[in-house]
């Protein structure tokens, strides 16, 4: 039940952060249940269930991969399209590779998230 920070400008995310009720992670879509950078998570936000992508983590990273001061997510819908139109914090460049690998043809397209990022580190 990690508290996360929504870093895009979607309505629901902005309201949740403004109210001081940040979303909580209730599931990680991988085998270990430990969320790493680029993983998809299910979050509880304002009484709803939404999906998000982890785009910045507090945990120690490998060399040259940025470590953030908060656990950041970007909310997406079923098809991988982000709910917001802009991300207002830097995004690690490694996500380009990770999200490209995770995107399969005919499946969800996660690379749309990269096009709304304002800055990469």
């Amino acid at each position: 039940m990690t508290k996360l920070r929504v870093v895009d400008n979607s309505d629901i995310g902005r309201q949740a952060m403004a109210e001081g009720k940040p979303p909580k992670c209730i599931h990680v879509y991988n085998r270990t249940g430990i969320g790493y950078i680029g993983d998809k998570v299910l979050v509880a936000i304002k009484g709803e269930k939404k999906r998000g992508i982890l785009v910045g983590l507090k945990q120690n990273q490998k060399p040259k991969i940025p470590k953030f001061d908060s656990n950041n997510i970007v909310l997406i819908d079923e098809g991988g399209t982000p709910l917001g139109t802009r991300i207002h914090v830097p995004i690690p460049t490694i996500l380009r590779t990770i999200l490209k690998e995770k995107t399969q043809s005919k499946g969800a397209d996660y690379t749309k998230l990269l096009s709304i990022a304002s800055r990469f580190v």
């Binding site: 940025p66 470590k67 001061d69 950041n72 830097p90 304002s118």
Partner: peptide, 22 residues
């Protein structure tokens, strides 16, 4: 040998660890 560099970008604290002889 490595070092950690820290900065705030867009009000978000970011740290990157570099290997010195990378």
């Amino acid at each position: 040998a490595s070092f950690i560099v820290r900065n705030m970008i867009d009000h978000q604290g970011i740290e990157i660890m570099y290997n010195m002889y990378d």
